[in-house]
Design a protein around this nucleic acid. Structure first.
Lengths: 271, 271
DNA sequence: CTTGAGAACTTCCCTATATAAGTGTATAAT
DNA sequence: ATTATACACTTATATAGGGAAGTTCTCAAG
């Protein structure tokens, strides 16, 4: 404990090595100055010149060293703060964050590629009919038990192989008759990448791990027993009324989520 | 198609309702002007005054309406861009993004709470010994087959109930003898929330769904068959050499990941 | 009537500078 | 010895203005 704190105290002193580097800002480059500076600082962290717990050179020091205005330094540091690499404390300094496994985030975007290349992906509607809501569905969609809902079952295939099984209950709206075309690819595509007109305001999504039921295994052509990912989703419109509740189910051996923590050097600059 | 594009075209005209509101920036407030402005714009989106596809008022308009400088408006909009609510296109305008399910991110942070309240959480080391690396381990840790590694098996309990089973292979470093205390709670705590001194630079994490093996089910006191989440992790030091490879396995009925897409009104302002 | 080039305009983007506010330390008074 | 104060140093916020990129309109040539 005491040893560790001494180590940190030593490391907290501003490291001037970053300033002694010969590289500087290329004013002719298309890459803005603040982005270049952020890159230099990230490079310093990646190479170990700046380590977790270390204090970055002060804004004034960076201004003088790289001959840019304080506002430019400010943006560069804000960028790193937003990206979660450093923390800035007013009156104290800016420090490099340690990597934490808890900071890992898994993006559903990985699945999105599946929907986008319509070359290999096809959507087949297995079933689409109007059903009366049972108590479970009614509670989720905040309607009365027995009211009409649209029940849809879809199967997504890539190169003919089934990958995702989708079941969904939709609010039945007499003013908005179901267009047959809506049931095909487009609806799911729009749901995922948000293209086109949308009436969704927000949604809740749960990720669970399950074992395929007999029906699911049969539809997904999977041997049993087979582990699976299940994405439960509940979407709301602009009046905060639920309009859709359903699940995506996919075989675990076809789906995998990867992520990285710490420093990625090919980060897109934006702020 | 043509109908939809007409609808979008109409909606794309700058919506002046945002400007006609009576509310304005409170200069006496502790909340900075840019954050207030960002809040006002988000509120407009949440209430439906600004809808997906709509164009925000131009920066100049916002300047005049709320009597702030261009740079302040700039920061507010940058904030919304970073948070993924709007997209800015140079020369065209800034537009409200539609909600996309693909934008959903699941945070491992939810697990972190488990490690933090040491009141109810205990870590028990089931096994810790030095083993020779087999080919699979050697390839992952980028060492020669047969080299020494530290193999650790841990069990995490909350309120006495087993929730996570952890297996890990560590590079054996003669210079860094294994302290018994390191094997207990602290090591995992630091791994997750990044407190204290760390030698980790970055790591890759995979999330998979599996079915518990006999051994795992027995240790986690789970009935069979039981679905489970599996987090495979591979960590690197500052020389980009692997130092640790392992898995966390947890019962699916004890773990669930939730997230939201679209507008959350209690967002922390920062930039 | 159609088409293409160019100017004018609107839009977001970037930098420079000044001022405020918080933190820690050294110093002086009690 | 303890407390209060002044100062140096940090990040945070705001203002002003110039520049770059895209869109739209105009107008002349084919």
């Amino acid at each position: 404990m005491s040893l560790a704190s001494i180590g940190v105290a030593m490391a907290q002193k501003p490291n001037s090595q970053v300033l002694d580097q010969t590289i500087s800002i290329d004013r002719a480059s298309y890459e803005p100055a603040y982005a270049q500076l952020a890159g230099i600082l990230r490079q310093s962290m990646a190479t170990g010149i700046l380590r977790p717990g270390n204090q970055l050179p002060s804004e004034a020091q960076l201004c003088e060293r790289y001959d840019v205005s304080p506002m430019t330094v400010r943006r560069a540091i804000n960028l790193l703060v937003d990206q979660g690499f450093v923390v800035a404390e007013q009156g104290r300094g800016t420090f490099v964050k340690p990597v934490a496994m808890g900071a890992a985030t898994f993006q559903l975007r990985d699945l999105q590629t599946l929907f986008n290349d319509s070359e290999h992906t096809t959507v087949h509607v297995l079933e689409a009919r109007i059903v009366d809501a049972d108590e479970r569905v009614a509670r989720k969609l905040e309607i009365s038990s027995g009211e009409r809902t649209i029940y849809i079952r879809r199967l997504l295939r890539t190169d003919g192989l089934p990958v995702l099984y989708h079941r969904e209950y939709l609010i039945y709206d007499p003013l908005r008759p179901i267009v047959e075309a809506e049931l095909e690819v487009t609806a799911l595509q729009r749901l995922f990448n948000g293209t086109g007109e949308t009436i969704l305001k927000h949604g809740d999504i749960n990720l669970e791990a399950t074992i395929l039921t007999d029906e699911e295994a049969k539809i997904l052509q999977a041997p049993q027993p087979m582990a699976a990912f299940c994405f439960e989703h509940l979407f709301y419109d602009f009046d905060d009324k639920p309009i859709s509740w359903g699940w995506f189910i996919g075989r675990a051996d076809c789906l995998k989520f990867s992520t990285q923590v710490g420093l990625l050097m090919d980060r897109k600059e934006r702020s």
